[in-house]
Design a binder for these strands. Structure first.
Lengths: 246, 246
DNA sequence: ATCATATAGTTCTATATAGAACTAGTTGAC
DNA sequence: GTCAACTAGTTCTATATAGAACTATATGAT
């Protein structure tokens, strides 16, 4: 189902309305990394010239991508990639009740990076067994709050195992975009609850069997291809997940 | 802060673009219950005649409300209230693993309906202390899965305590709309984990202190007024909450 | 150097128009 | 009765145009 190397740019479907064809064409160019985070896309005028469509139609195509959360328009300036607006960090779901109200220092440490063969459940999601696995530990002040296990398809993220540790910031999605041209556009979180396994307990400094919150996240690019799967554990009593429905 | 009786229809802000003024006017009329769930709103032509604006501007106003999730357009037919699309039932987060694959029968029982004075945290959200409290128990086959405590402002829901039990379906939001003209447009869920209190344990047939998932939900009307607050508990090992981010 | 002004380029609002696509109901043929 | 054809009404697509609002840069005066 999903493809793990750069998609072969499906031809626009002639049966679709013009504005949707243009939408698809632009989304494909964005997915190919044609424009960086801070370079403006072609203006409405340029696109009307390129395509022969009218401004109204071009605007409608762009507006569609804005609604989908991919682009962002700035009046007087131009149209840009939208920085993923959903707060990507799972970290924020673990409240730090600093009794004294001190500013605490968040820490983020990658404790392992290995090429690995994905188990079938994960391979089915990512579309390949040829993966890279990252293990990460996050905390605040002294408390360890989050143990993450992150799976990436090696075809898209080759070389991530060789990066200096310093080049990993606390947030991975900006790194994906800047280093590998992978733009995370959406994600699905699955929240559940389980007693800590021995491995998780050891990492978080908990007793085995202690209650933990489990977040499984699958992240997608614009075209709906899953490009990251992760599972995260943290102490249940610190956990609070907020979700807005509409 | 929020108002619990029908809002006094703020005058349109002349400084706003025409399409936003029309958006506000339409949203206000929707909030006042001017149109039922299956009656079409005025057509584009009617609205252009009423307002003196052009079709394009009218379309833009309507499209804004569609994007906000309030309305729904059906080509060839008309523009309607959108039925709240988010699956309102908290019940769905509790997986029933019927080992034998039998179709199970969900049950829903209101076990208490009382006028009550809301504690300050809830009163702050709902804007009043004068509330009605519903207690509900939901299950499937034999297993009890969900204990809910629901708080409603009495001003909007007066008479709900007198309804026949049979008039409560498994879903409350349709009842709110049909009986009280309250349209739930959005909600915020807060998910956490806690050991079962004595009361919750007794209701769900669990041991006191058994791990439970806790969902706190605040539900809002179109204009952002909170009109329902609930807290729900269920057995943690059955719980799985899914959320789509974008 | 600093500040005001002008300018080119961008998106945004608004109007007007035409026809296509679709829906729901009515009419008519059989 | 049943089915097909028609029709009025609706939303949807697409074009063309004009000016407003805003941004970023360049220019010029001091």
């Amino acid at each position: 189902m999903p493809q793990h190397d750069s998609a072969p740019a499906p031809l626009p479907d002639r049966r679709l309305p013009a504005y949707l064809q243009l939408r698809d064409a632009l989304a494909a160019r964005v997915a190919r990394g044609e424009w960086g985070p801070d370079t403006a896309l072609p203006s409405e005028n340029q696109l009307t010239a390129e395509t022969g469509l009218s401004v109204g139609t071009v605007r409608k195509a762009i507006q569609t991508l804005v609604d989908e959360g991919l682009l962002e328009r700035r009046q007087g300036s131009g149209t840009y990639l939208r920085k993923p607006a959903f707060n990507a960090s799972l970290f924020r779901f673990f409240a730090v009740k600093s009794a004294d109200g001190e500013a605490t220092i968040p820490s983020s440490r990658i404790i392992a990076r290995t090429a690995a063969t994905a188990p079938s459940a994960i391979a089915g999601i990512l579309g390949t067994t040829d993966c890279i696995r990252l293990d990460r530990l996050r905390g605040q002040s002294d408390a360890l709050l989050l143990s993450e296990e992150i799976w990436l398809p090696r075809a898209r993220f080759d070389g991530i195992a060789d990066l200096e540790e310093a080049q990993f910031g606390p947030l991975l999605y900006p790194l994906y975009l800047e280093r590998f041209g992978v733009f995370i556009a959406s994600a699905i979180d699955d929240v559940s609850f389980a007693p800590a396994s021995a491995a998780v307990a050891a990492r978080l400094g908990l007793a085995e069997g202690a209650p933990t919150a489990v977040i499984e996240r699958t992240a997608y690019t614009v075209d709906g291809t899953a490009v990251e799967w992760r599972i995260a554990h943290g102490p249940a009593e610190r956990f609070r997940y907020r979700s807005r429905l509409s």
